[in-house]
């Protein structure tokens, strides 16, 4: 299986001196294509920090982060942005859609940045929105969609751009249990059918239950790595 994410002895320290926080401590993980992984651990254990690292949003103090065969320590700010656009899909906790754009326009946004033709964008977006049960909602603005529907649009936006993997930080935090189940079903199916790689940072037991691999973090260290 192709490795899509690899960290080698990654350390991240916030602040310095007395108040320094060692958020990641020699973290080395490998994630391959097609995995469905949950990062879990108590609050403050470093889940978000690690997710940001493998999302190319932050740089480690030491160690290497290799994403889709690219050591991102070499990339400049603008190159990093472009790398994320081409390789990484994001689903954040909430409110990550642009409020003035419709579901359709939000979903096609990254493809537009990638320079994909309008014909192809249309095909992919309509197909995906239908798959996630949002047929007929294409022209709704985020404000006219429920939280669960918004998160599904965010998944479509990430997926439509054909990233190497999708990262989601607490994607279900603001959802009720029906919406959580729907979203999990969707991601699970995409993982099974399209072999899309997912990595979640989560507290949510329902998410953890569905994960195929669970990486436990505590105090910035990987304490357990469980394949199911």
């Amino acid at each position: 299986m192709k490795k899509v994410i690899e960290t080698k002895k990654v350390n991240k320290i916030f602040g310095d001196g007395e108040i320094a926080v060692h958020a990641l401590n020699d973290v080395s993980i490998e994630i391959s294509e097609g995995e469905f992984t949950a990062l879990v651990g108590p609050s403050g254990s470093g889940k978000t920090t690690l997710l940001n690292m493998i999302g190319g949003l932050d740089n480690p103090n030491s160690g290497n982060v290799i994403l889709n065969a690219q050591d991102i320590g070499m990339l400049k700010k603008n190159e990093m942005t472009e790398f994320r656009q081409k390789n990484i899909g994001f689903v954040f906790q909430a409110y990550n859609l642009i409020p003035v754009l419709s579901a359709y326009e939000n979903a096609e946004f990254i493809m537009l940045l990638q320079g994909i033709s309008s014909q192809e964008r249309k095909e992919r977006v309509y197909k995906l929105l239908e798959e996630v049960g949002l047929k007929g909602k294409e022209n709704n603005k985020p404000g006219e969609l429920s939280g669960g529907q918004q998160q599904r649009v965010a998944v479509v936006r990430a997926l439509a751009a054909k990233p190497a993997y999708i990262l989601a930080d607490e994607p279900t935090a603001n959802l009720d249990s029906t919406a959580t189940n729907d979203l999990l079903d969707l991601m699970y199916r995409l993982n099974q059918e399209e072999n899309m790689t997912f990595v979640f940072a989560t507290h949510d037991q329902r998410v953890i239950d569905r994960a195929k691999r669970v990486i436990y973090l505590d105090d910035g260290k990987v304490v357990k790595d469980e394949l199911r």
Partner: peptide
Amino acid sequence: KFEFGVLNAIGTNR
């Protein structure tokens, strides 16, 4: 601000 952050994170350059 938040929105700019999201847009930049998903790959919209400055």
